Simulated assay, not measured.
Amino acid sequence: METIGLGFHFEDLPVGRTFKTIGRTVTDADITNFVNATGMVEVLFTNIEFLREESDIKGRVAPGALAYCFAEGLLVQGTMQHTGFAFLGMELKIENPVFSGDTIHVECEVVEARLSRSRPGRGLVRTFNKVVKQDGAVALTYNPLRMIKCRSEGGH
Rank of each mutant, 00 (worst) to 15 (best):
17 R>M: 14
17 R>Q: 03
18 T>N: 09
18 T>S: 13
19 F>P: 03
21 T>K: 00
22 I>E: 10
23 G>T: 13
25 T>R: 14
25 T>V: 05
26 V>E: 10
27 T>Q: 07
28 D>Q: 14
28 D>Y: 09
32 T>A: 15
33 N>K: 14
34 F>M: 02
36 N>E: 14
37 A>D: 06
38 T>I: 04
42 E>A: 15
43 V>N: 09
43 V>H: 10
44 L>E: 01
44 L>Y: 01
46 T>L: 04
50 F>S: 07
51 L>A: 11
53 E>M: 07
53 E>R: 13
55 S>R: 07
56 D>W: 05
58 K>E: 00
59 G>F: 12
60 R>Y: 01
60 R>E: 05
63 P>I: 05
64 G>M: 05
65 A>K: 08
65 A>T: 11
67 A>S: 11
67 A>H: 00
67 A>I: 00
69 C>I: 04
71 A>L: 02
72 E>D: 12
75 L>G: 00
76 V>R: 11
76 V>E: 06
77 Q>E: 15
78 G>D: 14
80 M>Y: 07
80 M>A: 11
81 Q>L: 10
82 H>L: 14
83 T>P: 12
83 T>A: 11
85 F>A: 07
86 A>P: 08
87 F>K: 02
89 G>M: 12
91 E>Q: 14
93 K>D: 14
94 I>W: 15
96 N>M: 05
100 S>C: 11
103 T>N: 08
104 I>V: 12
104 I>T: 08
106 V>F: 04
108 C>W: 08
110 V>I: 12
111 V>C: 03
111 V>Q: 06
112 E>F: 11
113 A>W: 05
114 R>I: 07
114 R>V: 05
114 R>D: 09
115 L>S: 06
